[in-house]
Design a protein around this nucleic acid. Structure first.
Lengths: 358, 358
DNA sequence: GTCAAGGGCTAATACGTATTATCATGGGTG
DNA sequence: CACCCATGATAATACGTATTAGCCCTTGAC
């Protein structure tokens, strides 16, 4: 109505109180319905009227300062959440996070401001840990900083990681995918199809998730008394040569990228997939993610893989975090969860070729 | 190290001060480098040492309470941001918002907590406008609540809408796409191809963006002295019949869904697109969005349309909002922006058929 | 020796809220 | 009348920070 521009001023409880002719404390009492304290119906009415007239809205900051929760969950990602058109890595996780935090009545604070160091975000920047704004925090990201993680644990700030993480500073709460079990299961599937020479191709860089996959692979090898063959992703063609030299009939590959490369190399060498070489991918690239790779040169391949329950991981992480905030859950065993990954039968795995069998 | 579970306690300036043997005020002074006040180098050193030892982190709430910005931008969406697998409507907008707010040094607060009313989110819920947590707010969403919008304007809370919005309560800051100009341009393109009977098919529900498209269409019609034919989306086959009856050679269609439906109806009737009927879509479904519709039954059609600069709209909105917070920009003309939409030549528009020409 | 001028620090305060202790009033009971 | 109790309201306080007024001490000028 009045177009006078003027710095907005918050309506405070004190102003409402003045209007209603009561004290600020009385306004707070009416608002919070504290049990044990009684308010005369007539007074309550007057206050409520004043509240409506002024359009008062509670100042969450003041309340938090007073020691109450502000019902905000932080979300820290080590990379940008919303990609510019390449892979949509975070989407499904955040979908689950959003869904569950909405159900629990929390807002989400996306930390985007802290300066990046070499393009990667940092939790701690010039001594100011902004995570503290929120009641608790969910962390995700392919890359993790060991020191930061240790420091977080040390600070006793309530947080939950998405993806298994370990720290020497104490127990870390996390929700991960059970890659070890899923990898072993995929190995088992290959074994039952007659494959006796199954190799693993994984990241060279060591991380919890890579280690889990290798553990699952090694466990399966041990079970069948086969010496494992674990390769890393340095040079695709070198890896491929190694596979041929060792008469490998099936490869468990950590990422779709590697699988695509191997697939192409096999084609070029006259090997057919899956007739001559079976390929299993250790974790799907999410449907959403897959389809939002417009740059993808290769035609869509129907990989045999396992599904990482990204959405559920997100929502589960929120549930655990809220539990921690309520004091129901302490960081420790109960807050370390690995969710099962469902096998997905694609067309890149088949029976082992007769000729090279055994 | 110590596995004793115990409620985390924030380190405050007072504790740092005690450790350094100075007053709380001195710690604040060192932290904020207020000019005009001088601190002895030796003292500064002691304080900084204590800061490092304790791992102090500033409490944004306390600071905000003191009247300073907390460097948080709110983002309010009327629907869930991260979809469960259908259309990814918000992605590109939020990409721009995230990018720019990171550049400006702001965090993003996603409002997810407020109860929904009939599945749609509400800004105001039981008198508590949570938007106030943030310094300012960006609003997006297909649906808008008139009353809420008016009230927001009335409260003088700094906010910017994505998509043009008008309110009787005062000027609304927004960043929209210039749909009127783009629609007129697309009409012009058709005209130059010989089309003399061009219809508009739009939403029945009235909204700013629908009105803009119609304005552009009507303007173009007036320019060429043709009586307009504006239809609404009630019943696809009825619309199609109407188009045939009126010997329409080209249709401007508001959404891809409508376009798909018309395309199918045309095919069934033996009409070829674009040879017999040209179809222009008034605004692209974003690439990301398109490709993340796995459910989409129809094969990918290369629509002639215009590109809505979603990402740029997001980042521009942030720039305007930050400007408002700094006091550089007042809500009004300068904060009402319509970005141009680039024409995209697809394969659904061609020269008007000779037989029915004129 | 007195005064002025700073430099270097601290005490005090305000911000908005929630809660606890306190106070006023009045009615009932002995 | 003295006392207690219940009811209903308020004063006071704490939370963590930023800022301002003000205090103490040293130094230099006269």
């Amino acid at each position: 109505m009045q177009h006078v521009t003027q710095r907005r001023k918050r309506v405070t409880q004190a102003e409402v109180a003045r209007l209603a002719g009561v004290s600020q404390a009385m306004v707070s009492l009416v608002l919070n319905d504290s049990d044990g304290v009684r308010v005369a119906p007539e007074t309550r009415k007057r206050v409520e009227e004043a509240l409506r007239q002024t359009g008062y809205t509670v100042d969450i900051m003041g309340r938090r300062l007073r020691g109450k929760s502000n019902r905000i969950l932080g979300v820290f990602t080590y990379e940008a959440v919303f990609p510019s058109g390449t892979a949509d890595f975070y989407g499904p996780f955040l979908g689950g996070i959003e869904e569950e935090s909405e159900a629990q009545g929390f807002d989400l604070l996306l930390f985007t401001s802290p300066g990046r160091r070499q393009g990667r975000r940092k939790v701690y920047e010039k001594g100011s840990n902004r995570l503290g704004i929120a009641d608790g925090c969910i962390l995700l990201g392919r890359h993790t900083d060991r020191d930061e993680l240790d420091r977080l644990v040390d600070e006793r700030f309530p947080f939950v990681f998405i993806g298994r993480r370990e720290s020497s500073a104490g127990p870390v709460s996390y929700v991960g995918g059970d890659y070890a079990a899923a990898t072993a299961a995929l190995h088992e599937r290959l074994w039952s199809l007659g494959h006796r020479r199954v190799a693993l191709v994984g990241y060279r860089e060591e991380s919890e998730s890579t280690a889990d996959r290798r553990d699952g692979y090694l466990r399966a090898c041990r079970r069948h008394r086969k010496t494992p063959l674990a390769l890393t992703d340095v040079d695709p063609s070198a890896v491929f040569e190694r596979l041929r030299a060792d008469r490998v009939t099936a490869a468990l590959v950590e990422t779709t990228e590697m699988a695509v490369a191997l697939h192409a190399l096999a084609m070029n060498s006259g090997l057919r997939v899956p007739e001559d070489l079976s390929i299993g991918v250790l974790g799907d690239t999410d449907p959403t993610q897959t389809s939002s790779w417009p740059l993808r040169a290769t035609p869509e391949i129907d990989w045999t893989t396992f599904r990482i329950p990204r959405r559920e991981m997100g929502s589960r992480a929120v549930r655990i975090l809220v539990g921690m905030l309520r004091g129901d859950i302490e960081p420790g065993r109960r807050s370390q969860v690995l969710l099962p990954c469902e096998l997905v039968d694609g067309s890149t795995v088949a029976e082992a070729p007769r000729t090279t069998a055994r």
